[in-house]
Design a protein around this nucleic acid. Structure first.
Length: 596
RNA sequence: GGUCUCGUAGCUCAGUUGGAUAGAGCAACAGCCUUCUAAGCUGUGGGUCCCAGGUUCGAAUCCUGGCGGGAUCACCA
């Protein structure tokens, strides 16, 4: 990135010297030369024609000639239409490589202006296990946190667990009625799954009741309200809010089961949190804020006592903030938690990883906070991601088409094992190492598949076909990395040493310089990913690098002793590629095995 | 209906923020195991970048209007 900046300055100087006028910075467009043309960097001269008052080709040639003679690093140029392609000396790339090799934590940035960034993700409900949608959420959140850390920011990962409400009562009620005092241990089942089953059971029984009421002549709408089960659930919620000891104790127990289950899922997925909030602690927050807003005249009170915000000036509707009975709604508590987090952590930025179905909610949230006079409202970012759909369409919990997170991970690992066995890849590995490897591969496939897609887009997940081990996939990249490791090991066995830097100048092929240029791009890519919160940028880049590497080294022998200098140079390049692949995958939350 | 969003190869997706002849993988077909490990590599075919205008040297990318898919507009969370 520094290279492009200095190049830009040189071009500005050149234009000034040749045409006697200083161009705007914006007019200097430097980009990497496309692969099918000669050169390293390309200057687009079209914007400079206004200054040169000459045809594109001539302008390009004049600038090219000037740069070639005045700038040491540039050893040649060529012109195609309005594009000036500049070639740098091999020495230049070599010295670049030499400096990156000695750099510790290549790609990590010392940030002159580090921020404290709070990122919320996951946010599960304690009435059912995590599913595929949560996986996308968790992976995005975790990965973005890692990426921001490399940019020198201080990141706090938080989880806000929704552990209260009518849906929790539904599972509790079903357990009371049909559970026979079963618990996860007796059932031999993860607690979140057990509780989720009771939630489903409730829904089934409830539907039965509604159906029979309708048969008795009641309207469906009325039946849904009058069914005994839903009334009991509502009664339970009232008891919960009144802190009824029996209900509270059951609630605590069942929540514990679910949370223990979640912990296992999180652990398997490889994500974690610095702090976990519970909605049962925070749901009352925000009321104060709304009341102050009311006092200030920012909000208004309806005849029935409910409190609203009028957003019609902003082109939105009116939004309820307090019910007529004075209780808070979702928005009220989100106002509260935002405020609390901001003051608790004194954070500069708040990132919420939440599905795009809540775009409207966050737009309103931000608006309300700024109406309340909080200047930090603009530091709220909604990292909005699209739905994960199945080939058959959307996942529907009622139709049982939800892909369970635990099941999916297990299935991926199983597939990895089957494939590995089929190819004989696991022969000679111990049981423990074998398990470690198939787990790394299976989960790597899953994680990479999800992260390589632009977060804001909705995506299709095909459980059967998506887990490919070829092409733009996690396992392909993992494989490339392990090949590099094995190469380095073999070199050691053959007593070929990898130098710390390259002193003797080998001949650099265009393919090799392609790899060096890719290495050079890495910090830039990182920054870009951090700026728009997109692990996809890194994922696709890592794939490009791995592919480029595989293509080149496939048919170039590199462990030849008679050409020790070339071998050493290529080993060094391999090692560097390995470092980037490894660190890139780590940023995505994906492990890479040493062998596979 | 209002608002937001997406539309790129048969399928799944990239496309460096407006640049050169739009790229990968999968699927199909044809090849490559004395090389580091074939979970790999090489090649072939496959495109109205949803449509129509506009902006300019230049548009998949920006603006307007359509068409199509999705989300959302609750005293649910």
């Amino acid at each position: 990135m520094d290279i492009e900046k200095t190049l830009k300055d040189k071009v500005i100087a050149a234009v000034q010297k040749i045409y006697g006028q200083v161009p705007e910075e914006k007019a200097i467009q430097i980009q990497r030369t496309r692969k099918d043309f000669d050169g390293d960097f390309t200057l687009v001269v079209f914007p400079l024609l206004r200054i040169s008052k000459k045809p594109p080709e001539q302008t390009a040639s004049e600038i090219g000639e000037y740069l070639k003679s005045k700038v040491d690093e540039i050893h040649d140029y060529n012109v195609i239409k309005g594009f000036l392609n500049l070639s740098f000396q091999d020495d230049f790339w070599l010295s670049f490589l030499n400096t990156t090799i000695t750099e510790k934590d290549f790609g990590k940035r010392k940030n002159a202006n580090p921020q404290k960034i709070l990122i919320e993700y996951s946010s599960p409900n304690t009435n059912k296990p995590l599913h595929l949608g949560h996986i996308r959420n968790n992976l995005l959140g975790y990965s973005v946190a890692k990426i921001l850390e490399t940019q020198g920011h201080e990141v706090v990962k938080v989880n806000l667990v929704n552990d209260r409400g009518i849906h929790i009562c539904k599972s509790m009620l079903a357990w009371q009625k049909w559970g026979n005092k079963i618990d996860p241990e007796k059932a031999g089942q993860k607690g979140d799954h057990l509780v989720g089953n009771f939630y489903v059971k409730f829904d089934q029984e409830y539907k039965k009741e509604v159906r029979s009421l309708v048969e008795e002549g009641m309207s469906e709408e009325e039946a849904k309200k009058k069914a005994p089960l839903i009334q009991e659930a509502q009664e339970m919620l009232r008891k919960w809010e009144a802190r009824d000891p029996e209900v509270i104790s059951l609630w605590k127990e069942m929540n514990r089961w679910v949370l223990d289950g979640f912990d296992i899922t999180y652990q398997n997925l490889g994500v974690d949190f610095d702090k976990v909030y519970f909605e049962s602690d925070t749901y009352k927050l925000g009321k104060e804020l709304v009341l102050t807003g009311l006092k200030k005249g920012v909000f208004f009170k309806n005849d029935d006592g409910s409190v609203w915000a009028d957003l019609s000036d902003e082109g939105l509707d009116e939004k309820l903030l307090l019910r007529s009975d004075g209780t808070s709604v979702y928005m009220t508590q989100d106002l509260g938690t935002a405020h609390q987090r901001y003051t608790d952590f004194n954070a500069d930025d708040l990132i919420y990883v939440v599905g795009n179905e809540q775009n409207y909610h966050f737009k309103v949230l931000q608006l309300l906070l700024s109406k309340l006079g909080f200047s930090w409202a603009e530091h709220i970012h909604h990292l909005s991601y699209g739905m994960v759909e199945l080939p058959e369409g959307k996942m529907k919990s009622r139709e049982g088409t939800v892909v369970d997170a635990d099941d999916l991970m297990e299935e991926m690992i199983q597939t990895a094992e089957d494939m590995s066995n089929e190819l004989g890849k696991l022969d000679g590995f111990g049981e423990q190492e074998k398990n470690k490897i198939i787990q790394t591969i299976g989960l790597g496939a899953l994680k990479y598949f999800i992260l390589k897609v632009d977060p804001k887009k909705s995506m299709t997940f095909n459980p059967k076909e998506s887990i490919d081990f070829n092409g733009n996939t996690g396992p392909f990249i993992q494989y490339s990395y392990t090949r590099i490791q094995s190469l380095i090991k073999k070199a050691k066995d053959k007593k070929i040493t990898i130098p710390d830097e390259i002193s003797r100048k080998p001949e650099i092929s265009s393919k090799e310089s392609e790899l060096i240029k890719l290495i050079h791009q890495y910090p830039e890519i990182l920054t870009e990913a951090a700026e728009n919160y997109s692990p996809a940028v890194i994922a696709n880049y890592i794939y490009d690098l791995a592919k480029e590497y595989n293509q080149f080294y496939h048919d170039h022998p590199i462990l030849s002793e008679e050409k020790a200098a070339i071998s050493q140079f290529r080993l060094l390049l391999s090692k560097q590629v390995g470092v980037i692949i490894n660190s890139g995958m780590k940023l995505l939350g994906i492990d890479v095995p040493e062998r596979m």
